[in-house]
Amino acid sequence: MKQDTSRDGFFERVYEVVEQIPEGMVATYGQVAKLVGEPRKARYVGFALHVNPRPGEIPCHRVVFADGRICEGFALGGAGAQRRLLEDEGVSFRDDDHVDLSVCRWPAGM
C-alpha cells in the first residue's frame, strides 16, 4: 500500500529542516531526507519542495542534487532563478549548473 507522505507529516518535517539551512549554504535532497529520518526518500523531499506552501519563508532554493547540480525545474522560475538566489547569498559555483559542495554544503547530518 502506498504511503501518503503528506498525511504522516513528512512534508512538514521537510519544511522544518529546510528552514534551518543557513543563508549561504546548501543541502542535498538526500541529506534532507536523512535529517527527517527517511534516508531513502530524497525524491519525496523534491515533491514536498515543489509544492512549498510558504515560498520566501521556506528556502527551497538551498536544496540541490547530490552532485551539487541545481534544479532545472525550480518551481520559482527555473534553474536561473535558483542560481541567482544562491549567488545573492554568496554560494560558490563550480560551473554553470553545480554549486561547490566542498565550500558551501551545510554540515548537518554529515
Rank of each mutant, 00 (worst) to 15 (best):
M1A: 14
K2I: 07
D4W: 10
T5Q: 08
T5Y: 15
T5E: 06
S6P: 09
S6I: 10
S6F: 12
E12G: 05
E12R: 14
E12C: 07
R13V: 03
R13W: 03
Y15F: 15
V17W: 01
V18D: 13
V18A: 03
E19W: 06
P22M: 02
P22A: 02
E23F: 06
E23D: 14
E23P: 05
G24D: 10
M25Q: 15
M25V: 01
V26H: 00
A27K: 04
T28C: 02
G30C: 02
G30S: 12
V32N: 00
A33D: 06
A33R: 09
K34H: 08
K34D: 13
L35W: 01
L35T: 02
V36D: 02
G37N: 03
E38Y: 12
E38I: 01
K41W: 15
A42E: 05
V45T: 07
L49T: 07
N52E: 10
N52F: 08
P53M: 11
P53F: 13
P55W: 08
E57M: 12
I58S: 09
P59H: 09
P59M: 07
V63A: 05
V64I: 00
F65D: 13
A66Y: 04
R69M: 00
I70V: 15
I70P: 00
C71A: 11
F74S: 01
F74Y: 15
A75M: 04
A75I: 07
A75E: 04
A75L: 06
L76D: 15
G78E: 08
G80W: 03
G80V: 05
G80D: 01
G80P: 05
A81V: 13
A81R: 11
Q82N: 03
R83D: 02
R84H: 08
L85G: 05
E87Y: 09
R94V: 12
R94F: 05
R94E: 14
D96R: 13
D97N: 12
D97W: 10
D97H: 07
D97P: 00
V99S: 10
V99R: 11
V99H: 13
L101P: 12
L101M: 15
S102H: 13
S102Q: 13
C104N: 15
C104E: 03
W106H: 09
P107W: 06
A108L: 11
A108R: 12
G109Y: 10
G109R: 03
